[in-house]
Design a protein around this nucleic acid. Structure first.
Length: 103
DNA sequence: GGAATGACTCTTT
DNA sequence: TAAAGAGCCATTC
């Protein structure tokens, strides 16, 4: 597939995350047809524009935590948005057993 | 073409 | 869930 299709799929999968749920990088990669490409997801997300429509805040690592530096603005923004969506966050960790997206 | 890098995951302990 | 080690994928230099 083209390198562009890979991004398109990732975008689609991320966009498909229902409100109030979160998904892990590996999960997204697998659903996009790229098993093991978890790092790619992070790479893509890091390149997203500030005005993107993608719910990137619903993407977290497999530990249920946010991989962003806690001193970053994106980190604060993510916490804020998740809280707005009724996703409980304990410190920097999220209860995957309750909020993880299960397609 | 090879080495380094990154918003990571998996299997064991 | 936490820690340590190895692995995987694409981009970039």
């Amino acid at each position: 597939m083209d390198i562009n299709d890979r991004n398109i799929r990732l975008y689609s999968v991320i966009q498909g995350i229902p409100l109030g749920k979160v998904a892990t990088y590996g999960q997204i990669a697998s659903l996009a047809g790229l098993p093991g490409a978890a790092r790619l997801v992070g790479k893509i997300l890091s390149g997203l524009p500030a005005d993107t429509k993608l719910p990137w805040h619903r993407v977290i690592n497999a530990a249920g935590k946010i991989s962003l530096p806690q001193n970053s603005d994106s980190f604060t923004e993510q916490i804020k948005r998740l809280t707005e969506e009724k996703v409980l966050i304990c410190g920097n960790a999220i209860k995957l057993s309750e909020f993880k997206w299960r397609p």
